[in-house]
Design a protein around this nucleic acid. Sequence first.
DNA 1: TCGCATATGTAATGTTATCACGAAATTTTA
DNA 2: TAAAATTTCGTGATAACATTACATATGCGA
Lengths: 134, 134
Amino acid sequence: MTTAHDLTKNQSLVFSALSDARAPLSAYTILDRLREDGFRAPLQVYRALEKLLEIGLVHRLESINAFVACAHPQCHNHGTMAFAICEDCGNVREFTDDQIAERLADWARTENFRPHKTIIELRGQCQACSIGEP
Amino acid sequence: MTTAHDLTKNQSLVFSALSDARAPLSAYTILDRLREDGFRAPLQVYRALEKLLEIGLVHRLESINAFVACAHPQCHNHGTMAFAICEDCGNVREFTDDQIAERLADWARTENFRPHKTIIELRGQCQACSIGEP
DNA sequence: TCGCATATGTAATGTTATCACGAAATTTTA
DNA sequence: TAAAATTTCGTGATAACATTACATATGCGA
Ligand SMILES: [Zn+2]
Ligand SMILES: [Zn+2]
Ligand SMILES: [Zn+2]
Ligand SMILES: [Zn+2]
């Protein structure tokens, strides 16, 4: 009981697949990569993802229907995260901005909106991929 | 040539369906609502949506795979919009926040990331739906 | 009228996600 | 430890979302 959560076998396999990947993976891509490990059906992936998302070890990228391992798994403190997703190479940067989180919280407060989850995603081109393109 | 764009018949039908709706609609819901008008296949909806999104008359809500008519169709100026989506009643509020847009632009500048599109979506509970729930 | 761009109709297919059911494994409690 | 409750897992079917491919039509300038 050293780590905060013990993962089941399936959860560990899915998390490893995401950790090993250099880019976000779709649930079905994960399934394909885990067939050798005995995965047969989408639900095996989705169930593991559900738990990993709940724990906070994995994030879902809503705008591309894909999943990434959290970039800061040690500090589970994250509230609102933002993701910059390169549309060329798939690279993802995860970051926080307290001012943005505050502004959104302010808006919600004044409008009496109760946020359960906040999604911030930048789609574009990363530095590496923009080299050579004026 | 009073309006900025002339819509085709299909585009007008899809836009009307979205304008008339009190909540975001999925592409397939739009299809069902337009069957009386001769729609038969998903592509008729998706093609119209593609154009309406390009023009800026309609927005896509990435986190729920649905579409809404723009709340400010007159000022086509909008850069980054944010959406507050009620998970109970489906009501959507569209708003801007220049400070948030600036912070994101700053992050992108310093990280040499070139954003093509920015997604901000708050999922939660609107004021009306939170009355009576402590 | 020809050529081109845009819009449309339709079927088929691809991709993403969930439901329903039961069995197995694990944890809880007596 | 044995029974009960809870959680996890396996599997097939199905639902929901989106695109490809190809044929046809329509409008417009040369
Ligand atoms: Zn994270
Ligand atoms: Zn890149
Ligand atoms: Zn708008
Ligand atoms: Zn509501």
